[in-house]
């Protein structure tokens, strides 16, 4: 279990370093094209570690820069959904009654909607661009967190320390955020870690469909998208970005699952 956590964290750190120091790691300019026949669609070699794409760009360099997109979309989108989800969930669970009913109805409605289509629509409207992708993924993926926080609040609000705080005249907002929330954060950390992986998947799918990060800016999804037309010949264009997405998501999931087991040993080894 410790090894899983260690493994996940190590990979995440390596990716983060790659993203931050991309200009120093990348061997070429990720957007520099070379349309001559001898530099297009070249298989992996010493010069181009992961080969070149249909426009003669170095795939390795594009992948390194792609890590920037994936990680920043993952973290920022989840940050947004964390803010919305925690706030609405806390308010819903703490106050109950009408407020809770309205918020929960809204969550239910969102839950039944094929979210990806909504994201695609909104992005098509706003214009595909990395900031829009982050924001839209963030504001469409908070429902799970909201339910989670609400459930925690429903039990915590009946605890003595909450009553004690209220009797002392502490304001509602202070009770919610200073007294209850810290006690509800355990499952939230787990969910957030897993959500980063999910957000990376959504971003890559969007970029793959041409609704995410736009070329020439490289992202793992749009490298795949460009590569799919050459799949029967240039396998490296499909294999490497896909592996990168897989490993990134896997490492976030590893960390999330290990955290879950640590928080609730009862469940370890269980589904």
């Amino acid at each position: 279990m410790k090894t899983r956590l260690f493994f996940g964290i190590t990979i995440i750190i390596v990716m983060a370093l790659m993203a931050v120091f991309a200009p120093f790691i990348a061997s070429n300019d990720p957007e520099a094209m070379d349309l001559s026949a001898e530099s297009r669609l070249q298989p992996p070699s010493a010069e181009h570690l992961l080969g070149t794409d249909n426009l003669g760009r170095d795939v390795f360099s594009r992948m390194v820069y792609g890590a920037r997109v994936s990680l920043s979309v993952g973290f920022i989108a989840v940050g947004i959904s964390l803010g919305i989800g925690v706030f609405l969930g806390a308010v819903s669970g703490y106050y109950g009654g009408r407020v809770d009913a309205v918020i929960m109805r809204f969550v239910e409605v969102m839950y039944c909607f094929p979210t990806l289509f909504l994201i695609m629509i909104v992005i098509a409207f706003l214009g595909p661009d990395i900031v829009n992708v982050m924001v839209v993924i963030g504001i469409t993926s908070w429902t799970g967190l909201c339910r989670l926080v609400r459930a925690e609040f429903l039990t915590l609000r009946e605890r003595d320390f909450v009553h004690a705080a209220r009797v002392q005249g502490v304001s509602d907002m202070r009770v919610i955020f200073r007294h209850i929330l810290p006690n509800a954060m355990g499952p939230v950390y787990v969910s957030v870690t897993l959500s980063v992986g999910a957000a990376i998947l959504v971003e890559s799918a969007l970029s793959f469909l041409g609704l995410g990060v736009q070329i020439p800016t490289p992202s793992w999804g749009n490298i795949l998208s460009a590569g799919k037309n050459y799949i029967d010949y240039a396998w490296w264009l499909t294999l490497f970005p896909g592996l990168a997405i897989l490993i990134a998501v896997l490492s976030f999931n590893l960390v999330g699952e290990s955290l879950r087991d640590m928080l609730d040993p009862r469940l370890s080894g269980r589904g």
Binding site: L201, L224, I231, L246
Partner: peptide
């Protein structure tokens, strides 16, 4: 692994 696998990549 299935959880982390981008399904569209699998399709490719």
């Amino acid at each position: 692994i299935g959880y982390a696998l981008p399904a569209f990549w699998l399709a490719l």
